[in-house]
């Protein structure tokens, strides 16, 4: 077992790729709209929140729609990605018992297929901009960096969740509720400068919130300061490294439990 994340499965690139494609094919099997759903899901969530919040608030800030879809995009990918990561080992137990595969393979594939899903989400994101008369500036070029942070966060959390799920299936229920809570405590439909108290406290340690904030800034023509980049990155990488160390420590103890 190698001591670096992803190193042990580097020679499995073709299998990872094939698995990611397959999981996308299988995810929407039997549905009439097929992969279109991967774009429809965040779009419908956007429509719902947009209609609700633009009618209960007297004055909405300008470009609320773009602000909202930015947050929804990151939130949606985070939830899809961590949920896929959560089930990645348990749902593939028959594969693990029949082939000699590195266990790290499965959370990585889950994050990989989330990466593919991301492209559909990006289509929605950029597709909505002309609808709301918005054009991004050059700062949007930072988007890939923010997305990479998000993917590392998803993989780091998937390292934890995929193993814990083997030992304690209760995590599925918990993570469902937790994801639900995240939509409220992450600056998706509210602005960080409009709130105080507990929401700010949570925001300071919420890596998803930090990522969403970075996203908001680069969408609205601001360049985050070095401090902001560093803070978010450190938060993400602490989780990522901790997840990997946890995974390495416990992965050998789970095969008989599957």
């Amino acid at each position: 077992m190698s001591n670096f994340p992803l190193a042990s499965i580097l020679d499995k690139k073709s299998l990872i790729w094939h698995f990611c494609i397959t999981s996308i094919k299988l995810r929407y099997r039997g549905t009439y709209l097929g992969v279109l759903w991967s774009a429809l899901e965040p779009l419908l969530m956007f429509v719902l929140l947009y209609v609700v919040f633009s009618s209960i608030r007297e004055t909405t800030k300008e470009d609320f729609a773009i602000y909202l879809i930015t947050g929804i995009m990151f939130y949606h990918l985070f939830v899809k990605g961590t949920m896929a990561g959560l089930g990645s080992i348990v749902n593939n137990s028959s594969l693990l018992k029949s082939f000699n595969l590195k266990k790290e393979f499965f959370p990585v594939v889950a994050t990989g297929s989330t990466t593919l899903l991301m492209f559909a989400t990006l289509v929605v994101f950029f597709g909505l901009m002309p609808v709301f008369d918005f054009s991004p500036t050059i700062t949007i070029l930072f988007l890939p960096i923010v997305i990479v942070l998000l993917l590392f966060l998803i993989l780091g959390i998937s390292y934890f969740l995929s193993l814990i799920n083997v030992l304690l299936r209760d995590i599925q229920q918990f993570w469902g509720i937790f994801s639900y809570a995240l939509i409220f405590v992450t600056p998706i439909f509210w602005h960080i400068e409009d709130v105080d108290g507990i929401l700010v406290a949570i925001h300071n340690v919420n890596p998803l919130g930090q990522i969403v904030e970075l996203g908001h800034m680069i969408v609205f023509n601001q360049i985050p300061s070095l401090e902001q980049w560093t803070y978010a990155s450190v938060l993400v990488f602490i989780i990522f490294i901790a997840g990997f160390v946890f995974f390495q420590k416990f992965e050998s103890k789970i095969i008989e439990r599957l």
Binding site: T22, K25, L26, S94, K97, S98, F99, N100
Partner: peptide
């Protein structure tokens, strides 16, 4: 190099 053929069904996907 080992090829394990242990369980029919594992590694097969009905929808493919």
């Amino acid at each position: 190099k080992i090829a394990p053929l242990l369980q029919i069904g594992a590694g097969f996907y009905n929808e493919l």
